[in-house]
């Protein structure tokens, strides 16, 4: 499965490159930047899903809040960038954890869809509050290392893209190691699959859920800060990030962090190539169509586990 999809994807890249040359390369690097953004949001979805089976529709809002808080601290208050980064992440993380305790935890015996609706309510709430605090205009956050484009082989990238790439790589590594190499992480995966067995290892579903929400909020906030110089921060960006991040998470296989990255990158590259090849108004339609076809061919997502997928 993974080899099959990797082959198809590589083929797509090779064909684009050979036909379009440096233009094709430009599409691919632009696509990888956008894709990394989706990947970071997708990872947040995956972390919560793999431990609680809940789809968190407020995931995009965590990124939005991260970006807006960064604006307040770094651009408005003049706090040094690293400190502003940490402050913003901490605030969003506390918010995520607090929400889990106040609204998700009381619903631990209810159906998953009830919790999903609660996260929808939360996203509406966060968006409205953000607009109240920061207004509706997009704001600018300075790039971490300047705006001078870096050129190679006829393609050009802004330096911030490398921050995004680097952070995505670091995030996926940490999340992967946490869930596969630490006892707590393994216990959390187990807790989702078999709560009784997991409690034997000392991880209750309740703790597991709290940890997952904490990680997802922190991840989302950090992602929102890293991408803000490219995307501009605004109260409204969370919706689109959530939608594309969700799509990427499913494409890669919900619950798998490497899958989220693969899904995000593929979605991003597909979108740019579609915008380049087809009339650009249809680019999202093309991307979603391919996504549906991929789902029908590999219904558990590219790197997902085969469970509860086909009817």
């Amino acid at each position: 499965m993974i080899y099959g999809s990797a082959t198809v994807f590589t083929l797509l890249l090779v064909v684009t490159l050979s036909i379009k040359g440096s233009t094709g390369l430009q599409w691919i690097v632009s696509g990888l930047t956008v894709g990394s953004i989706y990947a970071l949001v997708a990872m947040g979805f995956s972390v919560i899903y793999s431990s609680t089976r809940v789809i968190n529709f407020a995931q995009g809002e965590f990124s939005m809040l991260g970006g807006m808080l960064m604006y307040t601290f770094a651009s408005k208050a003049g706090v040094p960038v690293p400190l502003a980064f940490i402050l913003s992440v901490i605030i969003v993380t506390l918010l995520g954890a607090g929400f889990e305790r106040l609204a998700v935890h009381p619903l631990r015996y209810s159906s998953v869809i009830t919790v999903i609706i609660v996260t929808i309510g939360f996203s509406i709430f966060l968006r409205a509050v953000a607009k109240w605090i920061w207004g509706s205009d997009p704001v600018k956050i300075a790039s971490f290392s300047g705006d001078k484009p870096i050129r190679f082989l006829g393609a050009a990238l802004v330096p911030q893209s490398f921050w995004v790439f680097g952070f995505t790589a670091l995030a996926v590594l940490l999340v992967f190691l946490f869930f596969n190499r630490t006892i707590v992480g393994k216990g959390m995966t187990a807790a989702a699959a078999n709560p009784d067995a997991a409690s034997l290892v000392g991880i209750s579903t309740s703790t597991s859920s709290l940890i997952a929400w904490t990680i997802a909020a922190a991840l989302g906030a950090a992602a929102g800060i890293i991408i803000a110089p490219i995307k501009f921060a605004a109260y409204s960006v969370g919706t689109m990030l959530g939608l594309k991040g969700f799509a990427a998470a499913i494409l890669g296989g919900l619950g798998s962090a490497p899958g989220a990255v693969v899904g995000g990158l593929i979605l991003g590259v597909l979108e740019t190539i579609a915008a380049g090849v087809f009339p650009s108004g249809y680019k999202d339609a093309v991307a979603f169509l391919i996504l549906i076809l991929v789902l029908l061919a590999w219904p558990q997502g590219l790197l997902g586990r085969r469970q509860d997928v086909m009817a």
Binding site: I55, A247, G281, D284, F288, L289, I292, L295, L296, V309
Partner: peptide, 28 residues
């Protein structure tokens, strides 16, 4: 017919995609 072979979140994703495609077609 094809999409309902999927379940749960995968069905959610597929239907979401259909919704987006329809929206784009209405606009384009």
């Amino acid at each position: 017919k094809p999409v309902l072979r999927l379940k749960g979140n995968y069905l959610a994703m597929a239907t979401l995609g259909l919704g987006e495609i329809a929206f784009i077609l209405f606009s384009q």
